Computed example of a mutant assay.
Amino acid sequence: MTDLWIDNAPGERRAALVVDGEILEIHIQRDMQLILGQAGLGRIERKSPSGSYVITEDGTEILIRGTIDKPDGAQIRYEIIRESISEPGRVKPAEARVTALCEEAVDTESLWNARLGALNAKSPISVPFGDAFDIAVAGSSKIGDATVYFQRTKAGVVFDVDGIGDASAINSIAAQEIARLLRLYQIGGMVIIDFVAVDSKNKRQEIADIFDVASQNDGRAFERSAVNGFGMMQVVRGRPRPSVLDIMFGTRISSLSSETQALWLYRNAVASTGFGPRIVTTNSDVANILRSPKWNALHTQCERLIGASMTIIVGENITGYGHVHVAQS
């Protein structure tokens, strides 16, 4: 049985493809980001060997590769063909193509619904699934005697396999788990896997075959290398959107970005119960985001959903990303 779980909150939509109670894929769309397929107007700011950098109407910089036969400052219409992707230490701008000025724009709600429709699941139901992010936050997954560690780098996502006992058995478990995690968190781009080294070429081929079988139902195309004598295998997967890890951590390696912390606090505020005003206590970086003019509409949306006012304060010795308190009304 294939289900579609939805868990939306101000500024962030979540969906999970679920089969027989197991989450296979997580999809996230943040409404303040440019979405794959979204169109709009912009002006050419500057040209470079990489292409033309265009400033959208909301001030976002995007890249259009190739030559545009228009001068700097000219207005163009664009369509996003690859979303902005945050990597440790840097943000790769969204990429777009030039479209005709008369083409009709598609709103982000329709784009999200089309993305969910492509999953071929039953009608969505509202189910919170925040615990599905625990492995991503921990950066590791333990299955039996095998442990898989993973981390984002500028070059890609690196997986390291460890365990006690027979190397082939550990690698077999890990190959299946890594294939599961790649699909679960929608990881694209370069993936480097460091299996436990084995001498036998046949055993190394078995590892690759197990990975291939475990990846069969993943709709994202990939190419991989063989497993070499040191246990290394490279996998390259399509990357039209940021992965769940990219979205969660932003330009940090493995800690939640300030934007993620801010959105998760809004999510917690909306989920909180009671009739009194909400007091959101967090660190100064997150508080500055929540108080910024760009977030005014989300703040108003939260208060409307809560049915009460919401105040942002900076707390000392904050643990985690903060907390939401329901004051006595």
Rank of each mutant, 00 (worst) to 15 (best):
T260M: 09
I312D: 01
W112V: 06
F230T: 14
Q33T: 04
S254W: 13
T281G: 00
S140N: 14
G139R: 09
A287Y: 01
E303D: 04
A118R: 08
A271P: 00
L245S: 06
I178E: 14
D246P: 05
G229F: 14
I164D: 14
F230V: 13
S284L: 13
A16V: 01
L245M: 15
G250D: 07
G163L: 12
R46H: 06
S257H: 06
L24D: 08
A197N: 10
D212T: 02
H325F: 02
R115K: 02
G276Q: 00
I313N: 04
L245W: 08
I164L: 15
A287F: 05
I23N: 00
I23A: 12
L34H: 10
I55V: 15
S200V: 07
P93F: 07
Q176M: 13
A197T: 07
G66T: 06
W5F: 06
F150P: 15
S141G: 10
P293F: 06
I193C: 11
S258L: 12
N317W: 13
I192G: 10
G11I: 06
R252L: 13
I279A: 03
M232H: 15
G307K: 07
F159W: 07
Q176K: 15
V137L: 11
T153G: 07
I68F: 08
L263F: 07
R90P: 01
M190A: 15
N228A: 09
T311S: 12
N317Q: 15
V19I: 13
N296A: 06
V314M: 04
T147L: 14
N288C: 02
R77F: 11
L181S: 11
R304T: 15
S255H: 11
L36W: 02
V98G: 08
A74D: 04
